[in-house]
Amino acid sequence: MKISEIKERKIIHRPTLSFDGYGKRIYHAYEYYLSYNPGFKGNETQRLFAKWIDMAIFTLIFFFICNKILIVSILLSVPCVIIAGTVTEFYFGTTLGKKIFRMKVIDDDGNYPGFSKSLARNLLCLANFYPVFSEYTTKTVAMGWRRGTQMNFSMHLNNKICKTYIVKESKIPEIKELLEADSNKKSLPE
């Protein structure tokens, strides 16, 4: 069983226009089986900060120990972060920046990614910094409705291509349990 194959049962109660004898609204229950999402809300921001932490460490090493100028230190830190990220994700499922935010990288089987998959993820992280612009509208007391443009980074492209997931460390036992339960369910004869 793979994480992408897990289905989660959701029951949604939708109100109708009818009321019962006590004046309470009648609801219809709809049952859906949705794909399981092991991720968490706000992971893009945390992943961006984790990547900056990883880069800052190598930048400081090149700047203070190797006596390189700052821009050269930043440029040299990029390939170091890719290589170090590949190795640490392969062995430990995390990097130092991700460890601070208690995040792990797992593949579709629930394990740490293999070396080639981890290398592909880290090379594709360079494409993740492509900004996405979107418009937003807010209501202020003094100005009424106000429109603006905000910039977001799309930090999920490498995971989508490599079929990996960024999860919180605390959620890994739940994912393993779901994978085990679904594989046991499929192995039972009918």
Rank of each mutant, 00 (worst) to 15 (best):
M1P: 07
K2R: 03
I3L: 01
S4V: 02
E5Y: 00
E5Q: 01
K7R: 14
K7Y: 05
R9M: 09
K10N: 04
I12W: 02
H13K: 15
H13P: 08
H13A: 11
R14K: 11
L17M: 12
G21I: 03
G21Q: 14
Y22V: 08
K24I: 12
Y27D: 15
H28F: 14
A29Q: 07
A29W: 05
Y30A: 05
E31P: 00
Y32F: 13
L34M: 09
L34V: 07
S35A: 06
S35T: 07
Y36F: 15
N37L: 03
N37P: 02
P38D: 03
P38G: 03
P38V: 04
G39I: 12
F40G: 13
N43D: 12
E44Y: 05
L48Y: 13
F49R: 00
W52Y: 14
D54I: 11
A56Y: 10
A56S: 13
F58Q: 03
L60P: 02
L60D: 07
I61H: 10
F62P: 00
F62W: 00
F62E: 00
F63R: 11
I65A: 15
C66V: 04
N67L: 07
L70R: 09
L70E: 11
V72P: 02
V72S: 14
I74Y: 04
L75T: 10
L76H: 14
P79H: 14
V81S: 11
V81N: 07
I82C: 13
I82K: 08
I82R: 13
V87M: 03
V87A: 05
T88V: 00
F90P: 04
F90W: 07
G93Y: 03
G93W: 03
T94F: 05
T95W: 03
L96I: 11
G97W: 00
I100A: 10
I100R: 11
R102T: 12
K104I: 15
I106N: 11
D107I: 02
D109K: 04
D109P: 01
D109N: 12
D109E: 13
G110H: 05
N111P: 08
Y112E: 04
G114E: 05
F115R: 07
N122V: 05
L123N: 06
F129K: 06
S134I: 08
S134A: 13
Y136L: 10
T140H: 12
T140Y: 05
G144K: 03
R146N: 09
R146H: 08
R147V: 05
G148N: 13
Q150W: 08
Q150K: 06
Q150R: 12
Q150P: 02
M151Q: 09
N152Q: 14
F153D: 00
M155E: 14
M155F: 01
M155V: 03
L157N: 01
L157Y: 02
N158K: 00
N158M: 04
C162Y: 00
V167A: 09
K168Y: 10
E169Q: 10
K171V: 12
K171I: 07
I172E: 02
I172F: 04
P173K: 04
I175E: 12
K176G: 02
K176A: 07
E177G: 04
E177K: 11
E177V: 02
L178H: 12
L179W: 06
L179R: 14
E180A: 12
S183Y: 04
N184C: 05
L188M: 04
